[in-house]
Computed example of a mutant assay.
Amino acid sequence: MRDDDRAQAFTLEGLMSALLVLLAVLYAMQAVTTTPGAGEARESTHRLQQEADDVLATVANDRSRDLSRAVRYWDSEEHTFAGARDRQAGYGDAGPPTDLFDGVFARTFTERGYSYNVALRYRSDAAAGGTGVEHLVNMGPPGEDAVSATRTVTLYDNQTLTAPGSGDRELWEYDTDPSNGEKGFYPIPDVATGPVYNVVEVRVIVW
């Protein structure tokens, strides 16, 4: 091979190498542009966390549809929250009825493609410090990027259930034994002395 042919071959190899390097750089730049970074993911999680806090705060401060009303929205004959699917799923994927929260969970989360659970944790045994859980809304196991927000609700002995047709029976008059049909069934027990009935933690988990 002549020297000029060898030189042309080296030049061609150099151009091809440079082209491959350029294509690799362009591909890497495109991947960085189209793939959300860790900072963006953190910002999205922080925003969702703030929205969960805001929703609970809004509901807690609503005089007509507050969290206490939701905790007491129980059908003592059906042994579920009024109109719910069952105790395990609560209102499930359908979400709570408009009568409870005026659709704020649907507008904030469901309509934007998010799922959420609403769990009520309460003291089940005053002496042993045990806890129980009722599911107001259970849409399934939370994802890895789930966020949560909590509020506490104090129930009082002289309050009543808020489900339609519940009547004026006060909380302390209900039984926590579902087999007792005479007194009516409400799963959250009276574990406090004085006018306080129980303290319930309302936890919302969104993903």
Rank of each mutant, 00 (worst) to 15 (best):
M1I: 11
G113M: 01
G37A: 06
F185D: 02
S76I: 04
A57S: 14
Y114T: 07
A119D: 15
P164G: 01
L22G: 15
G37H: 05
R72G: 00
T45W: 06
L155H: 01
V104P: 00
D66W: 05
Q8Y: 13
A70D: 01
V118P: 04
D177E: 07
W207C: 12
G184L: 07
R121F: 07
L161P: 06
V21Q: 12
N180G: 10
N180K: 10
Y156F: 14
G103C: 07
N198Q: 02
N61R: 13
T110N: 13
G37N: 10
G165Q: 06
L120H: 06
F185W: 05
R42P: 09
S76A: 10
D102Q: 12
D66F: 04
D5Q: 15
A60V: 09
I205V: 15
R123D: 13
V204P: 09
G95E: 01
V71M: 04
E201K: 14
H135D: 03
A18R: 11
E51F: 09
E134T: 04
S44M: 12
E173I: 06
T193D: 15
E40N: 04
Y114D: 11
V153I: 08
A126K: 10
R85L: 14
A41G: 07
A52G: 03
V137N: 03
G184H: 04
R87T: 11
Q8L: 11
G14N: 07
N180F: 10
F185K: 00
E40Q: 13
N198I: 06
L136I: 08
L23D: 05
A9W: 10
V199P: 00
A82K: 10
A52Y: 00
V133R: 12
T98K: 11
R47W: 12
V55E: 02
F185M: 03
V199R: 09
T160I: 13
L26K: 13
L56T: 04
V204I: 15
D53S: 07
T176R: 02
G184W: 02
G37V: 09
G129R: 00
L26A: 15
Y197E: 03
E78C: 06
F105T: 02
A38S: 13
A106L: 11
A84S: 04
R107Y: 12
P141R: 07
V202A: 00
S115V: 10
P178S: 03
S44P: 07
M1P: 14
D86I: 08
T34S: 14
A57N: 10
R203A: 06
R151I: 11
T45V: 15
H135Q: 07
N117H: 01
E144N: 11
R121Y: 02
